[in-house]
Design a protein around this nucleic acid. Structure first.
Lengths: 158, 158
DNA sequence: TTTAAATAGTTCGTGTTCTAATTAAATTAT
DNA sequence: ATAATTTAATTAGAACACGAACTATTTAAA
């Protein structure tokens, strides 16, 4: 097998692991990974626009709409149409949404974070550098992919 | 930004890049990335079982079934139930499937492959090894995915 | 001012992906 | 030999993800 194929297989495995974790999350907490990411965004910036959420977690607006649909049905978020600009829709957490989010785990496997954090500094750097390198080779740099993983901290996002 | 967050941002970008490439592929050639992967597997090993395809591209059998459904509708593959073991379904390329696959691009961006192929051997290995390492760190401990050895050549798998 | 263009969000159609449940067949155990 | 188990594939149902087309609104241009 060629190296690039091996790389693709390895990438697929990682993608799958993330997806499986999302499914497991849904069983455990009732929220999938993407749903959790959306809620964390809303938590950081109540009244955030759909477009802003989409950009911040690197998804299309259409996808975010469907995720918010499900969150709204569950009673975890509210949509409110802006008065200044009636095209805009602002999203807020409900009380129930807040309390559920407070107990929810991270959107990525604790398992992984734990293991990663136990690596030596230079090993971590090496893993990061490699991923970034692959990303840049795929020309994925232009895509704003900052997921809201730092939401645990209280720092306000742009 | 913490190292694990950086890693995950980079990962998200790569995942998204692969997804977008798959969509583009579908527009250009009429085949998505996963469909292409399935066809390449069938091409290498005509009569391959659904289960084998699933393992080789790291998908559940259910997913492969649905991908083969679409390929069959397009007339690119055939299903034939095995005679020795009637539980098995063997998959073959049709003539049309062969000719389409012959002209189809690789499942990763050409762009990426070109750049990747220009790296030195040891650099390629290092990128692959790192991805495999991340994959194994994310694996739910159930799967003993000995990364390097298990990813044997497709043509050698039986 | 009336028209044209841009923006925000949604809807629609297609495709991917999973688990759980189902059907069918082969294997093992009693 | 019959029953229980395992294996192979499919189906059903849910969530996700995208682009394209649509509605409504705002802004810019003529």
């Amino acid at each position: 097998m060629q190296k690039d194929e091996e790389l693709l297989v390895a990438l697929r495995r990682v993608i799958r692991a993330i997806g499986l974790h999302s499914k497991q999350l849904n069983k455990d907490v009732g929220l999938t990974g993407p749903q959790l990411l959306v809620m964390r965004n809303v938590s950081i910036k109540p009244g955030i626009m759909v477009r802003q959420i989409a950009e911040s977690i690197t998804l299309s607006p259409a996808t975010v709409t469907s995720i918010i649909d499900r969150l709204e049905i569950k009673g975890l978020v509210n949509r409110i149409r802006s008065i200044e600009d009636k095209r805009r829709v602002q999203v807020f957490l409900t009380e129930q949404g807040k309390s559920i989010l407070a107990d929810a785990p991270l959107p990525l496997q604790e398992h992984f974070i734990n293991r990663f954090s136990k690596l030596k500094e230079w090993e971590q750097s090496q893993l990061v550098a490699t991923m970034q390198r692959i990303g840049s080779m795929m020309d994925a740099e232009g895509i704003d992919a900052s997921p809201v993983l730092e939401v645990g901290s209280l720092s306000e996002k742009v």
